[in-house]
Computed example of a mutant assay.
Amino acid sequence: MNDDEWLLILAAEIVDVSADKWAITNVLEKFVTLFGRLVIKCKKGNTFSRYVCNLSKYLNQATVKEILPCNIVAKILKSMTESIYRITIWLMCSMGK
């Protein structure tokens, strides 16, 4: 994917953010079938957050590039799960756990 192409992996409302915990969110169920399948084109520019954004700021310029077939979702999720597992292990090791 190019720098201006983004894969939707989650759509959620942030309910609460605290300094020492993960944010509390409510997953937006109406988008669940598109997780891992929807690719949008959107020029975010050099923003602070590379992977998370408030899409409402970009709705006027974002366009759907493609919706991937369901059979590719399993491959993407497997890859993401492996990456998340490696990151979690690294974080636990770096925090001395």
Rank of each mutant, 00 (worst) to 15 (best):
E29C: 02
R37I: 02
C42A: 08
K75P: 00
E5P: 05
F48E: 15
L55Y: 03
V32H: 09
A11M: 13
G45L: 05
V39I: 15
P69D: 12
K65W: 02
V52H: 07
Y58Q: 03
A11I: 05
V39A: 02
A19G: 10
T47E: 13
L55N: 07
E66H: 04
G36K: 03
K57S: 08
T33P: 05
V73W: 08
I67A: 10
K30E: 15
C53H: 10
A74I: 09
I40Y: 01
I40E: 00
L7M: 09
I67L: 13
W6T: 10
L8D: 03
N71M: 07
T47R: 12
K43L: 08
W6F: 14
T25M: 12
P69R: 01
N71W: 15
I14S: 05
G36W: 00
L55I: 08
C70H: 13
N46V: 03
I72Q: 15
N60Q: 14
L38E: 05
C53E: 05
G36S: 05
K30W: 02
K65S: 07
N71E: 15
C42L: 06
K57E: 10
S56H: 13
C42Y: 03
T63K: 09
K57V: 04
K30N: 12
E66A: 11
I24M: 08
C53G: 14
W6I: 09
R50L: 12
V15E: 15
A74P: 03
V17L: 13
T47K: 11
V64Q: 03
W6E: 07
A11D: 04
V52W: 02
I24A: 12
I72R: 15
E29F: 06
I76F: 08
W6Y: 14
K30P: 07
K44P: 00
P69Y: 00
A19K: 09
L8P: 05
L59A: 04
L10G: 15
V15S: 08
I40M: 10
S18H: 07
T25L: 10
T47A: 08
R37S: 06
E29P: 03
Y51G: 14
K30T: 14
G45P: 07
K43T: 12
K41S: 14
L10I: 06
R50N: 13
I9V: 12
I76W: 02
V52E: 13
S49P: 01
K41E: 14
